[in-house]
Design a protein around this nucleic acid. Structure first.
Lengths: 217, 217
DNA sequence: ACTATTTTTTAGACAAGTCTAAAAAATAGT
DNA sequence: ACTATTTTTTAGACTTGTCTAAAAAATAGT
């Protein structure tokens, strides 16, 4: 049984090795965890002792299969709780991350599975991120294409958004942008890479950064 | 913001000063917390520093108003989560306590209030224990009269059960004894203080101990 | 290839929450 | 009231997860 801190490290290593590099460096991990590199070194030795990561001095770390399974279970719990908070308790997108960070550490696989069933086995969380099943399997086809790559006159459906700041989520809420929202690309401006879209009969300009944080299909 | 351990001490002090004595001794608390008395002394000094308990060396402790409020919020969360687990996720009575022990430490009063609303503001948890409202108020009329005090031919409704072992809850489940169950007292045996009851057309003998752990009205 | 810089580790420290062993205070028995 | 027992506290230690400062290894610049 792992501590919350150990679980948070596993989750961070998993996320970094997906987004960035296969092998995660001590410094990168220390930034993500908002701790000092020396603290990371200590933790990596502990996780290596438990066969959750493979770690070689000065070379960085990588999750073992066991570590990856464990990380996926935490991610599963996090995303299921996010669905619960948004769909059942009517929380806003921007509020759920922090609470799910706490709920993901509750230890009871029976609880997780019953929650999964209660929510009718959702495939994605409120941000469009895929939810691993009981065995850690998931299909990741929601967040493949950024809105910024769409062409003029394309009519697309929003399938995901990048996990970002509270302000970013509040902006999306203000624009009425959510999963499943249909938008049409009206224009793309080369001078600042912004995109003009049509959404619910309103025209909205999305900055380059925003258009890269929204995924469509 | 308190740690889980501090919260658990507050909860234990609250429970003991309700069930046993106004002022809780170090030894009694150490038994309840399953720690050594020396650990309790340390913690009491810490809680006294935070004005959550009043504590005098060698004399025991008592919750301050602030400590009582805090304890009631934890109890509120615990019991709301128990209702959620039983009513929404179909957990059995006997399984929910351990999970609720974890969930009660999730920090978000907004979550607690939204959960309360989602469950339609329940007044009691699955064991018949009252759920404090947002302000810590609750009415305690569910668990006043033990089944053992009922008289022959009384027809009563079960309003609560004492929080007990997993085996005790499994026994209740097997007998189909739940909150709201109607029973009729058929006989009381003086030789062992057991009670014979009629429940769903079946006759069941309840031992003295069991009849004292069931509350009726 | 050698030095300068960056990255990572080691060594020693600290707070929280626990323990054991010993001392001090309170309580009980006669 | 005095001693024996019980209760409670103190003192010192250990673990977890963190830190700072210094040392060691790896990387980059010319």
């Amino acid at each position: 049984m792992l501590t919350q801190s150990e679980e948070n490290y596993l989750k961070a290593i998993f996320a970094l090795s997906e987004q960035q590099t296969e092998i995660v460096s001590t410094n990168l991990l220390s930034e993500k965890m908002m701790t000092k590199p020396s603290s990371v070194t200590d933790m990596l030795r502990k996780l290596a002792d438990k066969s959750l990561v493979s770690y070689l001095k000065y070379q960085g770390c990588e999750l073992t299969d066991k570590g990856k399974d464990y990380a996926l279970q935490i991610i599963r719990k996090h995303r299921l709780w996010e669905v619960f908070l948004v769909e059942k308790l009517n929380f806003g997108w921007e509020e759920v991350h922090e609470i799910a960070e706490q709920l993901e550490h509750i230890k009871s696989s029976k609880l997780t599975d019953k929650l999964d069933a209660f929510l009718h086995y959702p495939k994605v969380d409120p941000h469009g991120d895929p939810i691993p099943d009981k065995n850690g399997n998931f299909s990741n086809d929601q967040k493949t294409k950024q809105l910024s790559f769409s062409n003029i006159n394309d009519e697309v459906v929003i399938t995901g958004v990048e996990d970002g700041s509270i302000e970013f989520f509040q902006f999306l809420k203000h624009c009425e942008i959510g999963l499943g929202t249909k938008v049409k690309i009206i224009a793309k401006y080369n001078f600042d890479q912004s995109v003009l879209i049509l959404l619910n009969e309103k025209e909205i300009v999305l900055s380059e950064l925003v258009s890269q944080k929204i995924y469509v299909q």
